[in-house]
């Protein structure tokens, strides 16, 4: 929560230049720029249809931009799929959470990257290393203060909405070494549970992983964000400091009711 702590002179950890994406005649992204610096929470706000979800999909590998380039740690990258982005250390928590309700917390955390047992039981019998997976999952959940979940083997559907969000965030934090993208993490939650998730976001940031937070909820954005990327008409309108601007300024900017004062 302290923008001075962010070293803006350092190179951005994730950056995009001139990203363009067209769907037929609709230009969803119009030469959009983007920077995320180490250790920060960058909120992305914008009206519906402004193209922020297309931007996020480009960054997370779900959509391939028509033009423009992205750099991760100064290296040019291009992702053909979410799996590729994930391999580069970019984890996304989708609004739908992408969890399997009937499967256990451990199964969900390791979905798609299961650990096998060492030795012949892993190589011949392809047996999963459940003890190691449980221990890892328990460790990650307790790091984020989520061990009120009593049983790591319980199905995700028996958890509350906030706990499910917690599991999805823990999965991202466990494997996301570079960047974590959170898409509307509080949209489906009540007041108390939103509170927990906001705490969780700050816990993750405190562990040194920068976060991109997409949200419509201005109080939440202003509470946790270090900088706010305002998206309008397919491009970045400006990046504002939540300490220097009010929520109504931000809303006015993203709806076009107000023009930018600083370039």
């Amino acid at each position: 929560m302290d923008p001075e702590g962010i070293d803006m002179s350092a190179q951005p950890i994730l950056a995009a230049k001139g990203l363009t994406k067209r769907y037929g005649k609709v230009v969803a992204l119009d030469r959009c720029d983007f920077e995320l610096y180490p250790g920060e929470i960058l909120a992305v706000i914008g009206d519906n249809g402004a193209g922020k979800s297309t931007l996020i999909k480009c960054l997370s590998g779900a959509v391939t931009p028509d033009e423009g380039e992205m750099t991760l740690d100064g290296q040019t990258v291009a992702f053909a799929s979410p799996t590729e982005a994930r391999e580069h250390g970019i984890e996304t928590v989708y609004q739908t959470l992408a969890v399997s309700p009937a499967l256990s917390i451990v199964d969900n955390i390791f979905m798609g990257r299961e650990k096998r047992r060492p030795g012949w039981r892993g190589s011949v019998l392809r047996q999963l290393d459940k003890p190691a997976m449980r221990a890892f999952a328990r460790e990650k959940l307790s790091e984020l203060g989520l061990m009120t979940i009593q049983n790591i083997d319980q199905p995700v559907e028996t958890l509350s909405g906030g706990q499910r969000q917690g599991v999805a965030v823990a999965r991202a934090a466990a494997f996301g070494s570079k960047v974590i993208i959170l898409d509307e993490p509080t949209a489906a939650l009540g007041v108390k549970e939103s509170r927990r998730v906001l705490d969780l976001i700050q816990d993750v940031r405190a562990r040194g992983i920068p976060i991109i937070l997409i949200s419509h909820n201005m109080p939440h954005v202003f509470e946790v964000a270090d900088r706010i990327h305002v998206h309008r008409l397919g491009r970045r309108l400006s990046v504002i400091d939540p300490k220097a601007h009010s929520m109504s300024d931000a809303v006015a900017l993203m709806t076009g009711a107000k023009e930018i004062e600083e370039a």
Partner: peptide, 24 residues
């Protein structure tokens, strides 16, 4: 029960979109 393939079978049946996004 005990292999990644088996877990993927359950995940695909449970919610194919979630499974895909999770990397299955």
């Amino acid at each position: 029960r005990a292999t990644a393939w088996g877990r993927h079978v359950y995940a695909v049946g449970d919610d194919p979109e979630a499974a895909e996004l999770a990397g299955v």
